[in-house]
Each structure stands twice: as structure tokens, then as C-alpha cells.
Amino acid sequence: MAELDKTQLAQFLLRMGDNTLILGHRVSEWCGHSPVLEEDIALANTALDLLGQTQLWLGYAVEVQGEGKTADDVAFLRDAWDFRNLLLVELPNGDFGQTMMRQFLFDAFHSVLLGRLLQSSDQMVREIAEKASKEVAYHVERSSDTVVGLGDGTEESHARMQAALDYLWPYVGEMFASDDNDRAIAAAGVAPDPASLRDEYDALIGKVLAEATLRIPDSDFAHKGGRTGTMHTEHLGHILCQMQWLQRAYPNATW
């Protein structure tokens, strides 16, 4: 297998950890505001799983970087251009339908990817994937059910879910837009090339969205710039303003 340098491995780990961090943060914004208590509790569980995974991915990333940083340092002290999450996960929550559609589109990708990571050549990646894949198997089951339920529900819920899908669809392609780093990671057997996951992903979401009576937009246009850090949306900066405020305002404190 090809030799992998540590910045390449770290880049992969940041991509994993930043996705779960930013999405976990977004989902946690619902706490106390959901349509019904049962959903409030369920969404908090999802956010907690994602934040727990963040600790593992970012914890391993800083270990690989070997600069003596902690997972908290990279979560709370990097600026937007250093974040490597997909644009999809930083998009605003919108209404509950948009949140659940975003969750489903990510969960489907996440579950396919984690399934492959169970065979990673890197033991630590394998171990994290083992824990995370069980959690995410439940996430995708739950978000699929909700997407189907709301897509097939009332006229209003159907319209809202279709609008959510139309809005989010241009952010799906970025999940599969591989670059040199992905190819190096794939060559080393650490993770699959994301482009290779597209068929399985399309099959999975195709089945669920059909059951939800929703139509996948024709366009295959894809925004990009999140996982490379070259151009995030304006939304990420606002997330960081909130998330990092205490650490930035009181740099010498421990919490």
C-alpha cells in the first residue's frame, strides 16, 4: 500500500470530525424548540452522537498532527478557512423539514462511508467507525422514516419537503467530489475514494425519496469549497462566532 504522510491523514480526519461537529452543533440548536417532545429528545440524541464522534475524530486528528493540541483546540480556535466540513452541514436549520432532509442526505452518505471504514487499514479509524456506524445506522433509519412520513403526509408537509430537497440538492454533489487527498487516502486503504460511494448512495436515497413521493431535481450542479476549505458559506462564520466565543474572549481560562 502507498505511503501516507501525516498531513494527508489529518486532512481526512478533520473532514470527518468537522462534519460531525458542525452538524451536531446545528442539530443541537433545536433543543427546546422541536414540534413535539419526542422529536426534541430524539434530535438531542442525534446531536450527542455526532458530538461524541467529533471528539474521537478530532482527537485522533490532533494526535496525528503531533503538535500537542487537543480536540477542543481545533474545534474552538480555528478560523473558518481551516474547517473541512461539507457545505451541506453548515446550512441553516430552516424549518423542521429542511433540518430532517439535510439530516437524511447526510446520514445516508455517512452510513455508506462508515460501512466502508470498518475495513480501513488504519486501526484507529476502524475502531471509531465501529462505534459510529451503529449510531449512524439508527440516525439514517430515523431520518428516512421522517422524510417518508412528511413527504407522504399532508399536502403542506409534502410541499415543504420538496422545497427542502430542492434547496439542499445542490449541496449533495460535494460529498463525492474527490481530490488528491482522497486518492492518497484511498490508495493507502484508509478510506474509500468518496466518488466510489455515489452509486450506493443514489440507490439508498432513491428508494427513500420515492417512498416519500418526492422528486429528485434534474440538475447535477454541485456547490463546493467546504471540504477543501476554499470557500465556505457565510453561515459557517456565524456558527463559529457563537461556538468559539467564550474560548476566544477569555483565552487563558479553563472551563
Binding site: 422541536s34 424549518d95 423542521f96 417518508v148
Partner: peptide, 17 residues
């Protein structure tokens, strides 16, 4: 707001069921 904004969700999931 949580209650009113959630009405369509509660109705939608029940209608599907």
C-alpha cells in the same frame, strides 16, 4: 413558536401513519 411551527409536522406524520 415551537408549537405553531410544528403543527404541520405533527399533522404530516399522523396523516402518513
Amino acid at each position: 413558536n415551537a408549537w405553531e411551527d410544528g403543527q404541520w409536522v405533527r399533522d404530516g406524520l399522523l396523516a402518513h401513519a
